[in-house]
Design a protein around this nucleic acid. Structure first.
Lengths: 212, 212
DNA sequence: GCGTAACCCTACGCACGAGTAGGTATGCTC
DNA sequence: GAGCATACCTACTCGTGCGTAGGGTTACGC
C-alpha cells in the first residue's frame, strides 16, 4: 500500500542544512548542554539517528554549527575589507559588515558565540576564530603605523587589537539583546569609541560615517 | 574506641569557605555542567551530603561562587573609586584595581565569569552585575560631560559604557590566558585604547600612568 | 524489473550524576 | 554525665538523554 508518505525523502545536502538550522536554533535557545538531540531532530522534522548518521555526535554537531555560521560571518566581513583603503575607512567597513551580519542573524550567531566561550571543547575552536580576527585588526593597525614610519611592540599591537575585538563582541551581545536597535547605528557608536576614544568624546569630537 | 578521627570536625563557616574554594576551582576547570558535585565534595575534603546541607543544589552553589567572587571584585574596585577625581584618573584607578584583581585570582574569577555568560540560569545574575558596572562607567562619563556643559543621549552613553566594559572583560580574558602578563601593564594598555582611541595611537599619542 | 544504495524509522541499552535516606559520632550546655 | 544540636558518613534511587541496533521503504542505475 503506497499511501502518501508522511515525510518527503530528501537528498542529504538539503537535510544537513535543515538539521544545522534546527541545531543553531535549539543550541542558542537552550545552551549546549540543555539542548537535547531529540529536540533538534524533532525541530528539523527528522528522527534522531539521521542526525547521528549525517552530522555525528552532539559535540561534532555543535562544532559544525559554529563552523557554518563563523564562515558566513568571515565572508560577510571579507567582502567589505578592501586592503588599500585608509585605516579608518577599513575599520568602519569591517564594523558595519560585522554588525550587519549579527543584526541579521541575531539569535543565531551571537548566542551561539556566547555559548561557545564557556564550554571547554569549543573554547579552542572559538579562540582560533577570534585569533584570526585579532590578527586581521592587528595587521591593519600595523600597516597604518608603518605608513607613518612608526612601529610598536607586537604584544602591544595584539592587546590593542584584542581590546577592539572584545569591545565589538560585547556590542554584538548588546545588539542581540536589543531587537529594536539599529546595526548601522551600533557600528557608528563602536567606531566612535574605538577610533576616537573616550577623551575625544568628552570634548565633543565625534566621528561620522562617510556618505558614500 | 576513640582513635584519631580521620577528618577534623570544623565549624560551618569554615567548611563553607572550603567548599566554595573547591567549587570555584572545579567549576572553572571543568565548566558548570562537566563539574560534578562528587568532585567538588572530594576536593573540599568532605562528603557530598554536606555540600547539599550547607550550600544547596548545584545551581545554588554556582550562584554562591559567583556572588562571593563578584562581591570581592566590586569591593576591590570600589576601594579605588574616588568620585571627586577627574574622569581619566578615575578610569585609570578603576581599571588598575580591576586588572589587579583578575590577575590575582586568574583562574578563579575570569573563568567563572566566562562560564556564566552562556548558561541561562546565570546569565541573568551576571547581567545584573555587568549592568551595575556599566551604570558606574556611564555615570562617570555623564558626570564628566556635564562638567563641560555637554550632554548626549542616554542610549549613546550606555552603548559607549558597554563597549568599554566589554573591552575590559576581553582583556581580562586575555590576562587569564597569559599567566606571565603584568596586570598593571594591561591596565595601561586598556587605558590607551579606551581613553585615547585608535586614531591617537596611530599618530603616536600615548597615555602614561601618573606617577603617584 | 531487479539489485543495491541511500534514506528513514521505532525502539532500546546504558552510563552518569544530581539529590536523598537513614544512621553515627562528637562536642557543648546545664 | 545526660541530652541535644551539629558535624559528618555510606550507600542508595532515579531521571535524563546520548548514542545505537536492527529493520523497513523509496529511488535510481543497468
Amino acid at each position: 500500500m503506497s499511501s502518501v508518505p508522511a515525510f518527503k525523502r530528501l537528498p542529504r545536502a538539503v537535510r544537513e542544512q535543515q538539521m544545522l538550522d534546527a541545531a543553531v536554533k535549539v543550541f542558542s535557545r537552550r545552551g549546549f548542554h540543555a539542548a537535547s538531540m531529540d529536540e533538534i531532530a524533532e525541530d528539523a522534522g527528522i528522527s534522531k539517528p539521521m542526525v547521528y548518521a549525517y552530522l555525528g555526535t552532539k559535540e561534532e554537531l555543535f562544532v559544525a554549527c559554529l563552523h557554518r555560521e563563523g564562515t558566513r560571518m568571515m565572508q560577510a566581513i571579507a567582502g567589505a575589507a578592501a586592503p588599500d583603503l585608509p585605516a579608518d575607512e577599513r575599520l568602519w567597513r569591517g564594523l558595519r559588515a560585522f554588525f550587519g551580519f549579527v543584526g541579521a542573524y541575531r539569535d543565531g550567531w551571537a548566542v551561539l558565540y556566547r555559548q561557545a566561550r564557556g564550554e571547554q571543547p569549543f573554547a579552542g575552536e572559538l579562540a582560533t576564530m577570534r585569533a584570526r580576527l585579532v590578527e586581521v585588526v592587528a595587521g591593519m593597525l600595523d600597516h597604518a603605523l608603518r605608513a607613518e614610519g612608526r612601529e610598536i611592540a607586537a604584544v602591544d599591537l595584539e592587546v590593542v587589537a584584542y581590546a577592539l575585538v572584545g569591545a565589538t563582541e560585547s556590542l554584538a551581545d548588546w545588539l542581540a539583546d536589543h531587537p529594536d536597535a539599529d546595526p548601522e547605528k551600533t557600528a557608528t557608536r563602536m567606531m566612535n569609541v574605538a577610533w576616537l576614544g573616550a577623551a575625544q568624546l568628552l570634548h565633543g569630537v565625534t566621528w561620522r560615517p562617510p556618505v558614500d
